[in-house]
Design a protein around this nucleic acid. Sequence first.
DNA 1: TTAGATGCAAATCATTTGCAATGAA
DNA 2: TTCATTGCAAATGATTTGCATCTAA
Lengths: 146, 146
Amino acid sequence: MGMRNIRKNRKEFSGRPVTSQRRLLLSLIRKADGHISAKELYRRASRKNESISLATVYRTLQLFKELGLVEERRLGQVYCHYEVKDSPDHQHLVCRSCGNVIDFESPLLSKLAEELKHEHGFNLTKIELYIEGYCQQCTKEASNMA
Amino acid sequence: MGMRNIRKNRKEFSGRPVTSQRRLLLSLIRKADGHISAKELYRRASRKNESISLATVYRTLQLFKELGLVEERRLGQVYCHYEVKDSPDHQHLVCRSCGNVIDFESPLLSKLAEELKHEHGFNLTKIELYIEGYCQQCTKEASNMA
DNA sequence: TTAGATGCAAATCATTTGCAATGAA
DNA sequence: TTCATTGCAAATGATTTGCATCTAA
């Protein structure tokens, strides 16, 4: 008895020790709506575990990246957001006014990736779009004020 | 007499004082091959003006951005590069192995911008691509080693 | 038992800011 | 003269790291 649990634990982080912090952080990332910053993840984790440190959050995020569990994205010009890796390929629109992040996807991006491979012989490992602008809502509000 | 010079100076930075630091920095950015980091700009400026400070470099870059003279781009995950604004629309490929930055342009990107406007009502002010991978050279070298 | 993880504090690194001194107009 | 700019040093904010202590296996 107990066999199944041991196996399961061993696998969860590819043989790396399963700690309560790692379990907590992974579940919070999965619960997060799409993407979450290290700081916000730390805030939420602190509610469940008062003594968890920011360093652990960063180290765990690093580990999750290496294990391919999460994806790191730089949104805006300052800090990173993290999201569960198996979420479908998509990009983000960051509204300069309300700060909301809107997800979208487009087949044009994979076409672009193909183009780069063929025309420049580049072997792509990552392709991200960084976009700024005003969302529909904020664009409307601005034009009403004018 | 002198009228022309005064006019010219007034215009150069839209009425803001023309200092030797600003002149130096602008000329160095224009001489730079496409893009340059704040740090490297500071290094080059220091050769001509020993006492120039990094703070001035950052403040001047900030001003140039506001005046629309340069464009700020985040390359890699850490720091920014700056480039003269009237350079044609293009994007960068950052090689993960040799670190070289390769410029390229593609009409697909403006198509994508159009798509976003129509499908999400987004009013775009900036669209950038962030790409990582291995350049042709490094890809070849890696496969020779295998 | 022991390699690897954690918490804490201090360290980095890019960028920003307060302030007194300086310089352009 | 006067207001903006500069240099310097200290402050920020995100992220990383050294180290002594814990803990999963």
